[in-house]
């Protein structure tokens, strides 16, 4: 019977593996095996979030960047540079996705922050401020 590890320990293990240049595929398989064996598969989302936090603490930020239209390379670079310039970030792992509901603008989610500069958000703020 395997010992139940805390999510933080698992995240630290994976992060050290990634940063030390270990095989990410092997680490991922180990994690999957451990979660299945210890019946903790439902914690996967939390563990991924913890890994992102741990990476962020080491200066490696995983950013989910959403926009209504596909971003040009220049815009994407500008966003990544902006992220690097703040919080002494060494590297940005950007994941881009199209979200038409944003109407226009961009939404950036990093482990400890959420920057929403979309039109839908502006409209939502306007609506909330005016709602009785």
């Amino acid at each position: 019977m395997s010992t139940k590890l805390s999510r933080r320990k698992i995240a630290d293990y994976i992060v050290s593996n990634i940063l030390d240049g270990g095989d990410l595929g092997v680490a991922t398989k180990q994690l999957a095996g451990y979660l299945i064996e210890s019946r903790r598969v439902n914690e996967l989302d939390h563990i991924v979030r913890d890994i992102e936090f741990a990476l962020s603490a080491q200066g490696h930020v995983v950013a989910n960047i959403s926009s209504a239209r596909s971003l040009s390379k220049a815009t994407a670079m500008a966003i990544e540079d902006m992220l690097k310039s703040s919080n002494s970030v060494k590297r940005v792992y950007a994941k881009y996705e199209i979200d038409k509901s944003l109407i226009a603008g961009v939404k950036i989610e990093i482990p400890d922050k959420r920057i929403d500069k979309s039109v839908s958000r502006q409209l939502s703020i306007l609506r909330t401020s005016q709602t009785n």
Binding site: S67, L71, S72, A78, I79, K100, I103, A104, V106, K117
Partner: peptide, 17 residues
């Protein structure tokens, strides 16, 4: 949404950045 063009969106994003 209908009147927004790629150019306008790009400008808006850059302004936001």
């Amino acid at each position: 949404g209908e009147s927004m063009t790629d150019k306008l969106d790009k400008d808006f994003i850059e302004k936001s950045i």
